[in-house]
Nucleic acid binder design. Structure first.
Lengths: 205, 205
DNA sequence: TGTGGCTATGCAATATTTTGCATATTGAAA
DNA sequence: TTTCAATATGCAAAATATTGCATAGCCACA
């Protein structure tokens, strides 16, 4: 139930509305913990019900009203005893690697294209992280305790992205010979163009 | 529904029983896709029902009987059209980083200990990956297409583990000054010993 | 002779996450 | 002037994942 805890640590910094949290989970915390707004709102209701956070309605005239949540003493305790519990290493679920496992029979060109898209994505994210790093944590040794925690999150992000970028480059050079070979031997696996109607999704599988 | 596909790519190599798959998901594929045996058995039933795989009961006298599954033509098609679909980058969920976000108020010694355990874990895993690398993929440039896919999975594993190991080291040197400072200022957050009754789990949070 | 581990499969209940939909206002752009 | 993006919150259904439990024989160890 770690989403609850991710919300609680966010509230440790300062009170947030669900909307705030949803945005925050698209940045900072979101670098290593994703959550949709639906999930956040649901979790906030649960947390409020169990007394770990308290809600306050803030009336706004220009914008829709907000419900701002803050930690209760109970919530702080719960958070800190959770922190004392042992932490399990996460499991990565990399769809792209699953696909690469089928490199023997799949069309290398398709996978090469996917790898290229990923390279771009991770380069962008790396650049973003590095920029935040420059702007907010130029001298890590001088940071306060609280900021060190945030810094270390970002730091792992940087290291990860660097790895993935490098991997994408290596993967490109290992897959592209297969793709060009496939072109030469003219053995197209499938002629259907990769048209994706956005919004549709296969139901059966 | 990527578990289904992770199963299908495994079956692409050769037929497997649920038990085989569960073990495989603790190795190779499991490096980047975890699944429990319950989930695997459930998924196998679904896949068999939708005709993507076929089941065959293998009678054994010494051991319990096994049910061996293999891909059908339908299954192969489904797998390959899934591969053509765009792939989303995964989201990492790192509990430890969530905890580190509370570094301002949490006990640094506890987190330092967790980081230490993680360092050990990832060093072990890195060593294991490197050993498999040596044993099975000594010269990546000479690998067949099929093996290249497997190699690239392992390769990302190595890069990841190297990053995390490095991060753990950096994190240790950034958190330990806080821990010793806390000892000096004698400000224990909680006196309760970190006893964990195995099998119990908090229900409310 | 009991205890535990490995092989092998599975059900049921709960928890978590995703997907789709719904509502309502403001301000800026086309 | 319609359309789009942003602000703000939420419900319901379906898909996925986790947790606990059950069965059952064989083998090794003490």
């Amino acid at each position: 139930m770690a989403l609850a805890h991710a919300i609680l640590v966010s509230l440790l910094d300062r009170p947030h509305s669900g909307y705030d949290l949803a945005k925050r989970f698209d940045q900072t915390v979101g670098y290593f913990w994703k959550a949709s707004h639906q999930q956040i709102y649901l979790e906030l209701h649960k947390l409020a019900e169990s007394g770990l956070i308290s809600a306050e309605r803030v009336v706004q005239d220009v914008r829709p009203n907000r419900i701002v949540y803050q930690l209760t003493a109970l919530g702080e305790d719960a958070l800190h005893s959770w922190i004392e519990e042992p932490t399990e290493p996460p499991s990565y679920k990399e769809e792209l690697l699953v696909k690469l496992f089928a490199l023997g029979t799949a069309d290398p060109a398709v996978l090469l294209n996917e790898i290229g898209k990923r390279l771009h994505f991770h380069e962008q994210r790396l650049a973003h992280y590095q920029q935040v790093m420059q702007a907010h944590y130029p001298v890590p040794e001088k940071l306060s305790a609280r900021k060190r925690g945030h810094y270390l999150g970002l730091r792992l992000g940087v290291l990860f992205e660097e790895s993935v970028v490098r991997w994408c480059q290596e993967a490109t050079s290992m897959v592209s010979p297969l793709a060009s070979a496939a072109v030469k031997s003219a053995k197209p696996r499938s002629a259907k163009p990769a048209i994706r109607k956005t919004g549709t999704r296969r139901k059966t599988l």
